[in-house]
Each structure stands twice: as C-alpha cells, then as structure tokens.
Design a protein around this nucleic acid. Structure first.
Lengths: 219, 219
DNA sequence: GTCTATACGTTGATAGAC
DNA sequence: GTCTATCAACGTATAGAC
C-alpha cells in the first residue's frame, strides 16, 4: 500500500553507512518542514539544504532529484499514517473501538502535524503523486473500514448513518486540529495547542460522534 | 446588461473602465485557480498571465506585485466567507439554526471549493497574510458565536459540549468536503462530488452533530 | 563520499516603445 | 493603457576537483 523507502542506497543497493543514514535523516527532516509549509512547488532545494546544514549538491547525491526527495518524504508519512488505521473490526465494541480510534488520530495530529499538513497540501494540489497510493488496494481497504460500521449497524449497535460519510467526519474533524492549528491558536488566543487542549478536543469529539451515532459510551 | 455602479481602481480610486474591470476579473479568476492548487510561493505570475490570456506585464500594471494580487484574491474570498457566517442567535431554535448553518457551509464547499482551498493553504503555510484578519474584532466575533451555543446550553436546549470545539467540528467537517474532494473522489470511485452527494453528506452531518449535542431535529 | 563551481532555465519585476 | 524586451535573482541540476 505504501510507496517504498529504500533502507539501502537507492543507487548502489549496498547497506546504508552511518553517515548516509544520518544525512538522509537530516535532509528528510528539513524537507518535511519546508514541504509542510509551502507544498511541493513552493519548496526549494536550496532552502532544504540550508536547513539541513549541507551543500545542496548532497541532496542530489542522496535523492536523485526534487521529486525523488518529495516521494521519500511522502512515503515516510504514509507508513506512519497506515500504521494507525487498521484497528477496527466488526467484533469490537463500537464505543470502545471508536473512542480508541479518535484518541489515536488526535494523538497523531498532535505529534505529527507536519505529516498531516504535507498530506493535506498534496491532496489540495491534486494528489497526483498519490495516484499510486489511491489504487485498487486502497479502495478495498477503505471499503473494509466502511463495512465494519455497516456490520455494527446491521447488528443494531448503532444508528444507520452512512458509513462512508462517518469516516470522512472522523478524518476531517481530527485532522482539522493538525492542519488548522494556526487558525485555532489565533482564534483562541493560544500560542500552541497543548497535550491537554488536544485531549479536551478529543473528548468533545468522542461525546458528540458516539452519541450522534447512537452508541452508548464505554464505561 | 445592467448599468451597475463601476468598481473603482484599487490604485487611483477613479472609476474603473469596462476593460479594466474585465481584465482584473480575468486575472483574479486565473490567480484563484493557481493559488488554490499551489499556494502563494508555488504559483508563478507567468502561469497566471498565460491562463488569463494577458502578457504578464499587465498583471503588474493592475496589481502592483505578486503579494498585491494574492491579497486581492484573499480579500475577495473573505468577503464571501464572512457573509455566510452570521446567522446564529441565542433566540434561534438550535435544531433549525444548526441545520441551516450546516447546509449553508456545505453549499459553500460545493460552490466555492477554490476559496476554501486557498484559505486552507494560507493557514497551513502559517497564515501570516491573514494576521490582519485574525484581529481583535475577529476574536470578538468568534467569542460571540461560541456564546450562542453557551446560551443554548444554559437554557437546557442542548448538552454541555464545549462551544469552541463544536465550532471547530462544524468547520472541519464541512470544509473537508471542499479541501479533500480529490481524496473523497478517489476513495469512492467518483469523478466529482455532485449536488446530491453533498446533500447526503450534509444530512449525515446534521444527524450526527445534532443528536450528538442532544438537540432534537427540527420537524 | 563530499563539496565547489557552474550551467542553464524560470522567476518577479521594470523600462520604454507603441 | 498595452505589450515587447530585458534584468538580476533564484530555481534545479550536474561536472569534476578533492
């Protein structure tokens, strides 16, 4: 499902040296910051190199070109992304499972806001770099997530809401706290969203969404 | 064609000629498309000029520089944005008012997705161009919106949810359908979101959010 | 493996003919 | 008011010395 990140040199296929690993990490880190703020087109290799503390020729040595670096960053992110998603099953207790899912997504929004923003930018920009990602497998996976909700509905464990739109509600409401953190801070007079703020936000979402779906909260 | 009062040149304050009005409109239209896709930094005057069918020197004639054009586009959007927001009052019936509000926002996401995306890109990019917009007045306005919900809560018309987070839930869940339309289409196998799709999405949100807040639906 | 120097296209912006 | 020609700055990418 995810694009491939070479643990080995993309050029030689040999195991990565310690220096290589360290430099690649520094570059990816710097690239994440820039891509998250300015998107693909708006980011320059120059700026990334400066932020990573390396001459810009090195970026081209480790990643063949700008798109190569971008794909590496995206892959990094999708790996994270995917790993937080596959926990719901029809056998689960809806209240418990949904609570856990929302908490996990909010925790992700708090700890990896950059990842969420890069993803958002890419989607808004047309998402062509993710066309590989949104393939048959992805649609099948999405379907299987939706069918979990359908199973709960059929078993009378929750209201007959549209499972697909419920997923979009879960995604939209949780990612909002990563992508729009700037606006949220400005509006509420904060300088940053604390762990506590995010937990409050999560509790609020859990209350409204569970009750809204006719699920009794877990004890 | 009607005899409207001509808009005025942003430079001279003199009445705008018909040519000027037409060209400015074409430029802003093209600029919106590009800024919505690539953000401020990722957009080039060159591309905008080509899309507007004008030599690029003209853009600098009508709008002093790139930032001037960007601000013009943003202002255009904020005007639209604000005009859809001020309908909730403590005297309203919560069910009716919230239903209307969600429908309005979804209608906005359907008709003006570009506007929503430019706003999203700007916020993700740090939102410095909006620092003027997020001023004292804005915070006061936001507060007054939140206090409407608080009034409903105090009157026992809805559950004691956090009014501020409720607003973020409303914003996040409705804007998601504009900003992430690409992903939604890919995932659901559609080519575009129809009016009918958006109405379904709205109905779903209304069901979950109203019930989740302990509000009985309007009849 | 690393970095300096550089090629060469594109950028935002302007000067000046029409 | 409009547009062609042009500028300096910056973009990605590479060649080749170390």
């Amino acid at each position: 499902m995810s694009l491939e990140v070479p643990a080995h040199s993309s050029r030689t296929g040999k195991p990565a040296s310690r220096i290589r690993q360290k430099n690649e990490q520094a570059i990816i880190q710097a690239a994440e910051d820039e891509f998250a703020r300015h998107g693909y087109k708006g980011t320059s290799m120059n700026t990334i190199a400066a932020k990573a503390g390396l001459p810009k020729a090195n970026l081209h040595y480790y990643f063949t070109n700008k798109m190569g670096l971008y794909i590496a960053v995206l892959s990094n992110i999708l790996e994270l992304w995917d790993s937080t998603f596959n926990t719901l099953t029809p056998e689960d207790d809806p209240a418990e499972a949904l609570t856990r899912y929302i908490r996990t997504k909010m925790e992700f929004s708090r700890r990896q806001p950059q990842a969420s923003r890069i993803f958002a930018m890419e989607i808004i920009s047309g998402g062509e770099c993710l066309s590989e990602y949104f393939n048959q497998d992805y649609r099948a996976w999405f379907s299987s997530r939706a069918s979990v909700f359908q199973a709960w509905i059929d078993a009378g464990k929750m209201d007959p809401v549209d499972p697909v739109h419920l997923i979009f509600l879960l995604w939209g409401s949780t990612q909002h706290y990563a992508d729009f953190a700037t606006q949220i801070c400005r509006v509420t007079g904060r300088t940053k969203l604390t762990k506590h703020d995010m937990e409050d936000a999560g509790s609020n979402l859990i209350h409204i969404i569970l009750k809204g779906c006719g699920i009794k909260p877990a004890l």
